Simulated scan of single mutants.
Amino acid sequence: MRVLVTGGAGFIGSHVVTALRARGHDPVVFDVRTDPASDVRAPDAVRAALNGVDAVCHQAAMVGLGTGFADAPEYVSRNDLGTAVLLTAMAEAGVRRLVLAGSMVVYGEGRYECAGHGVVRPGPRAEEDLAAAWARATGGSAVSLRYHNVYGPGMPRDTPYAGVASFFRSALARGEAPRVFEDGNQRRDFVHVRDVASANVTALESDPHAGALTAYNTGSGIPHTVGEMAEALSKAHGGPSPIITGEYRLGDVRHITADSTRLRTDLGWKPEVTFEQGMREFAAAP
Score class of each variant (00 low, 15 high):
113 E>R: 15
103 S>K: 04
145 L>K: 08
123 G>V: 10
122 P>R: 05
130 L>T: 13
115 A>H: 08
86 L>A: 01
128 E>K: 06
105 V>W: 09
103 S>C: 07
126 A>E: 14
121 R>N: 15
136 R>G: 01
146 R>S: 10
149 N>C: 12
116 G>K: 02
166 S>C: 07
91 A>M: 06
113 E>G: 10
92 E>V: 08
151 Y>D: 03
147 Y>L: 15
158 D>K: 12
146 R>C: 11
124 P>C: 11
109 E>Q: 14
98 L>W: 00
157 R>N: 05
131 A>W: 02
116 G>S: 04
153 P>Q: 08
128 E>V: 04
114 C>Y: 09
127 E>L: 15
162 A>F: 04
134 W>S: 01
152 G>H: 02
137 A>G: 08
137 A>V: 00
158 D>R: 15
116 G>V: 02
129 D>C: 12
92 E>K: 09
140 G>M: 05
112 Y>A: 14
138 T>Y: 06
128 E>A: 10
117 H>V: 09
126 A>G: 06
129 D>A: 15
160 P>S: 14
166 S>N: 09
164 V>G: 00
150 V>C: 11
161 Y>S: 15
119 V>H: 03
115 A>K: 10
136 R>T: 06
166 S>W: 01
117 H>L: 14
117 H>N: 13
158 D>I: 07
123 G>I: 07
140 G>I: 02
151 Y>P: 04
138 T>K: 01
132 A>Y: 01
143 V>I: 15
119 V>T: 15
125 R>T: 15
159 T>W: 11
136 R>S: 09
144 S>D: 06
166 S>K: 04
143 V>Q: 05
159 T>C: 08
90 M>T: 03
147 Y>F: 15
131 A>G: 07
148 H>I: 02
142 A>R: 03
108 G>M: 08
93 A>T: 03
131 A>V: 05
